[in-house]
Computed example of a mutant assay.
Amino acid sequence: MLELRPNCERCDCDLPPDSKDARICTFECTFCVSCVEGPLQGVCPNCGGNFVPRPIRPASKLTNNPASTVRVRSKHTIVV
């Protein structure tokens, strides 16, 4: 099951479970669409993989399968 991380690892913007702006790579590195399409140019700075839209977990499933609340920041990304 996906963690559904709550933030972009680069700019730290909020990415709630129903966000259409969340992008993930094969290792679940999570970034916002603005960072992916902008500075990251579609390449994960952590693993070098590509990104896909993160699936949206239906609200009815969040009670028993909640999204992560742990905010992750990429150690490979420098925010200017």
Rank of each mutant, 00 (worst) to 15 (best):
I56D: 01
P45G: 05
N65D: 15
N46L: 09
C35Y: 00
C44I: 02
P17I: 00
C47R: 10
N7M: 06
C35P: 01
I78N: 14
F27M: 15
P39E: 09
H76Q: 15
A67N: 14
S68C: 13
V72H: 15
P66C: 08
L4M: 11
V43Q: 04
C29V: 07
P16T: 01
S34T: 08
T26Y: 04
G38T: 05
F27A: 15
I56F: 02
C47A: 14
N7I: 11
H76R: 15
S68Q: 14
E3R: 12
G48R: 08
C32T: 07
R57K: 06
C8Y: 02
G38W: 09
R71E: 15
G49V: 01
C25F: 12
S60C: 03
L40K: 03
E28Q: 13
R73W: 10
R57A: 00
D21W: 00
S60T: 02
H76I: 09
G42S: 02
P39K: 04
V70Q: 14
T69H: 09
M1Y: 08
L2M: 11
C11K: 03
V80G: 07
R54F: 02
C35E: 03
F27S: 15
G48F: 09
T69K: 13
E37R: 03
A22F: 05
T30I: 02
D12E: 15
P17G: 06
T26E: 08
E9G: 13
N65K: 13
N65M: 14
I56P: 04
T63W: 07
S74L: 12
C32R: 03
I78H: 11
P53T: 01
P6A: 08
A22E: 04
S68N: 13
K20V: 03
R71Y: 12
I56Q: 02
R73C: 15
C35G: 02
A22S: 10
V72L: 15
T69Y: 09
S68R: 06
S74E: 15
P66K: 12
